[in-house]
Simulated scan of single mutants.
Amino acid sequence: MTTEHAALINGEPLPTDRVNAFLETPPGGAGNCATSHDEPAPARRPQEAPSVARQRRRWATQVIVTDELARRACADRGLNPPPEVSPAKVLTLAESDVADLGSIVAAALAHSPAVRTLLAALEAEQTVPETAVRDYYDRNQDRFLTADALRRGADPFGETAAPEDLLPYDAVREDIARELRRAAGRQAFFGWLDQARGGVTYSHGHEHPGDPSHPDHEHRH
């Protein structure tokens, strides 16, 4: 007997069909966590071992649950995500996003306009103190060497670098503040997601891929 819902979110069913649709995304889209979709997709996905298929379904369930939770959060906040893209044209995953966010959240970010909208809103809410921006500049001066200083191999933490070898603070302040605000927004997003997942109950076969209660579990994100 086929389970009609992949999960219950605060008691409301999340249809299995949504997970199935995501799983049917052609290879090269977010459905297989690829980082490019520029090449033609093969006609069908290669045969998978049963354990791999089970884990991929659990992974996909997490992506769709994240999408649904973000949709509800956007509605609560009065945010209006843009229309969804078709599965065949799903946004590409950046390798840096997979490394920074984990494959589940990175895929949700690529797949879901609601996730992108919510993350942008959380980033916009962050306030970065001037002291934090200045501290970042002072502690990471290797990132602010001028092109000439880089060519000469100047050491920003030693005696070989002069003040003129560094980009002025005022010239890079906005970029630093933007980067710190982005990092704070992502931290806020993870805090929101951890709390929101507390109301989710998964159906058999749709548990988290890292759930140790099933034999195929592996702790990856």
Rank of each mutant, 00 (worst) to 15 (best):
E4H: 07
H5L: 00
A6G: 04
N10R: 11
E12W: 04
P13R: 12
L14P: 01
T16V: 00
T16H: 02
R18D: 14
V19Q: 11
A21V: 01
L23W: 08
E24G: 03
E24L: 03
P26I: 04
P27F: 08
G28I: 05
A30G: 11
G31A: 03
G31P: 03
N32E: 15
N32Y: 13
N32R: 08
T35G: 10
T35M: 06
S36D: 15
S36E: 14
H37Q: 10
H37A: 10
A43C: 09
R44I: 03
R45T: 13
P46F: 06
Q47G: 01
E48D: 13
A49R: 08
A49G: 09
A49Q: 13
V52Q: 13
A53F: 09
A53H: 09
R54W: 07
R54C: 11
R58T: 07
A60L: 03
A60S: 14
I64C: 11
D67I: 00
E68Y: 01
L69Y: 02
R71L: 05
R72L: 06
R72T: 07
P81E: 01
P82M: 00
P83E: 14
V85G: 11
P87R: 08
V90Q: 15
V90W: 00
L91K: 13
T92Q: 13
D97Y: 11
A99M: 11
D100L: 06
D100T: 05
L101H: 12
G102Y: 11
G102K: 10
S103D: 15
V105W: 14
A106P: 04
H111I: 01
H111A: 02
S112D: 04
A120D: 01
A121P: 02
A121L: 07
E123W: 02
A124V: 02
Q126S: 00
T127V: 05
V128N: 08
V128G: 05
V128Y: 11
P129F: 02
E130T: 04
D135S: 09
Y136A: 07
Y136R: 05
Y137Q: 10
R139S: 12
F144C: 04
L145T: 02
A147Q: 14
D148T: 08
D148E: 15
L150T: 11
R151W: 14
R151T: 06
R151V: 10
A154D: 12
P156A: 05
F157G: 00
F157C: 08
A161T: 02
P163K: 07
D165T: 01
L167N: 01
D170L: 00
V172E: 14
R173T: 10
D175N: 09
E179S: 08
R181T: 10
A183Q: 15
G185F: 14
R186P: 02
F189E: 07
F190W: 13
F190N: 09
F190S: 08
D194A: 04
A196M: 07
R197I: 01
R197S: 07
G199D: 14
S203L: 01
S203A: 15
H204K: 10
G205N: 12
H206P: 07
H208K: 10
P209S: 12
D211V: 02
D211C: 09
P215Q: 09
E218G: 05
E218P: 00
R220A: 11
H221Y: 15
